[in-house]
Write a protein that binds this DNA or RNA. Sequence first.
DNA 1: AGTCATTGCGCAATGC
DNA 2: GGCATTGCGCAATGAC
Lengths: 158, 158
Amino acid sequence: MSKQPQKITNTEQNGVSVIQSQAHSSIANSTAGLQQVPQLVPVSPRGGGKASPPSKMKKTILDKDSDEYRQRRERNNLAVKKSRMRSKQKAQDTQQRVNELKEENERLEAKIKLLSKELSVLKDLFLEHAHNLADNVPPATAATVAPGDLCNTNNSSQ
Amino acid sequence: MSKQPQKITNTEQNGVSVIQSQAHSSIANSTAGLQQVPQLVPVSPRGGGKASPPSKMKKTILDKDSDEYRQRRERNNLAVKKSRMRSKQKAQDTQQRVNELKEENERLEAKIKLLSKELSVLKDLFLEHAHNLADNVPPATAATVAPGDLCNTNNSSQ
DNA sequence: AGTCATTGCGCAATGC
DNA sequence: GGCATTGCGCAATGAC
């Protein structure tokens, strides 16, 4: 969201475009030789001889052709790649976890069904028996059971 | 500590795409007034009469300064952004799904525990009663129960 | 001050 | 032709 009718394409600095190149030297560009043309080197930060720490200015402009720059880039590229790989892996793992959990869920649900069934059978049996007893002789332990407590097949937890 | 980059995978943005040759050039881009050097025309990829549609050669080299090019880029950038947003959203959703499933899992597990408990209580009661009966009078329906079937609290599915 | 890790972004190739 | 995906490099920023 947000797009203006403008074709900006570049990372401009805070007002100072730091672009510099040229000198297509050799540097081991095993990657590829690039070259940019513009050469805009910002003047020194401040004509002053002093440098105030609490200041908030851009640091040394980075030289694109610098050896260090290239090295830094390369390292970062590597790090980026690593990071992305890891990120992707994680996403994949998460997805798999979902599948596993789903399976587990089904398993549990099946178990619940089974237990419920067992329970209901047992309860019915029990009730039936209790009736029989009541029909003939006064129950002994049967009455102790408190059927109301165990007879709710529909277990409602929260 | 890791490895050294040694691949020549480079598709730098600035430097044109290195399709299959080592042609690269181009310049930068800028936002404000920076001139570019739109002079970059890779030679024809195939030296031949070409003109065969079914051929698999690169098409006209794209001009960076072309209006259409810019437009195409802009569109793609938009699409990319959208795609990435969606991707991220999806990952997030998946993560949440994991959480939900985990919760559900716990719930189910608790329920199982409860049912198991109920079942065991009922069974014990039942057995006890059966014993009582056996002690006094020969059982009637109690024998029909086949305790072995219902007494495995530890339900082991597959 | 120095390093790696993350992240937004644009480019280009490629898959529909 | 067009959008969607994806890998990649760059740069800013975060976390040590």
